[in-house]
């Protein structure tokens, strides 16, 4: 499939933004300046970006506790995200959500989610809205291999099929649910699960942006055409721990190093587009430099931004009470 040059460049920038955002958080978190805890998406960038490149603001996604990548890919503003993670009143959630609850309904981002398996039922509802309001939208649930075992997820696969919803279920399978391997925790296969609910199944290599883009394009087109839900199984590698500070003693010493060497979506993307003569290295270098500046500025701004006021504590529990 031919992908427009500007889509490619935008996708590269999004992936690079996610990578730098997360790597910077890795560093900043260690300084103790960031409250709470964060879950990093490094290594999985092509999944979020490859899927969301097929979506518009009219489409809806729901994310996970590892949500920064999905937010950036769907268009949530980076400075606002950084400020949110720093607990500032300028954050996208005014400092009341933090890393696990970044949301921006205006661009169809239904929220990261602190509850494993929290998103798929919501996506059934978003898909129902698209279907009922006939707005042509599609709703996409991102969830991990761990969440694939949650009852909520399995119920949602069933409900989406029963109601023939314009929904896509993206299993981001990075091989681990927290510290337990999918090979232990997931019985059967994702493919058989999709078949069990009567929905098409597509799988792809999540380090290959082009593979994800194509597979997601097919799945989303199917759902958008009113033919019902699809499961998209994306195979991924997680470069950091479950949360920041996780020593990953459950992974073989060379596992992450090999992933970084052989499955770096940014490296693979660059090789592919430069070899095909689509972009000069210098163009991509310019993107890298711009993103570096953007992240630096976002961090500086976040550190400088005002903290929430005491009145914010009581605000926005209800629309009206």
């Amino acid at each position: 499939m031919q992908i427009a040059r500007e889509t490619l460049l935008r996708s590269y920038r999004a992936m690079r933004t996610i990578r730098m955002f997360e790597e910077r958080l890795h560093v900043e978190f260690a300084t103790g300046e960031i409250p709470g805890f964060v879950h990093l998406y490094c290594g999985e960038e092509a999944s979020a970006v490859g899927v969301c490149a097929n979506l518009t603001d009219n489409d809806t996604i729901a994310s996970t506790h590892r949500g920064h990548g999905h937010c950036i890919a769907k268009g949530v503003e980076v400075a606002g995200m950084m400020a949110e993670i720093y607990g500032r009143s300028t954050g996208v959630c005014r400092g009341k959500g933090g890393s696990m609850h970044i949301a921006d309904l205006a661009c169809g981002m239904l929220g990261a989610n602190g509850i494993v398996g929290g998103g798929p039922p919501l996506i059934c509802g978003a898909a129902l809205s698209h279907k009922t309001l006939r707005d042509g939208g599609v709703a996409v649930a991102f969830y991990g291999d761990g969440a694939s075992n949650e009852g909520t997820t399995l119920e949602s696969l069933n409900l989406a099929s029963v109601w023939q919803l314009p929904a896509v279920f993206v299993v981001e399978d990075n091989g681990y649910g927290e510290a337990t391997a999918a090979s232990f925790a997931c019985a059967g296969t994702q493919k058989a699960r999709a078949a069990g609910f009567g929905m098409p199944y597509i799988e792809c290599d999540g380090s290959d942006y082009f593979a994800v883009h194509e597979a997601a394009g097919e799945a989303i087109a199917h759902a958008r055409a009113g033919k019902g839900p699809v499961m998209l199984h994306v195979h991924l590698q997680r470069w950091y721990g479950h949360f920041e500070g996780d020593a990953m003693t459950y992974r073989a010493p060379n596992e992450v190093a090999e992933a970084r060497r052989d499955h770096d979506c940014l490296k693979l993307f660059r090789e592919r587009v430069t070899q095909a003569g689509l972009f000069e290295d210098s163009v991509l270098d310019e993107v890298d430099a711009a993103v570096t500046d953007e992240i630096e500025a976002a961090v500086m701004q976040a550190k400088d931004d005002p903290l929430p006021q005491s009145a914010d504590l009581l605000a926005d529990v209800y629309v009206r009470y």
Partner: peptide
Amino acid sequence: GAAAGAAVTGL
């Protein structure tokens, strides 16, 4: 959950 998701997306 679907009802909650539909409620924040226009229904």
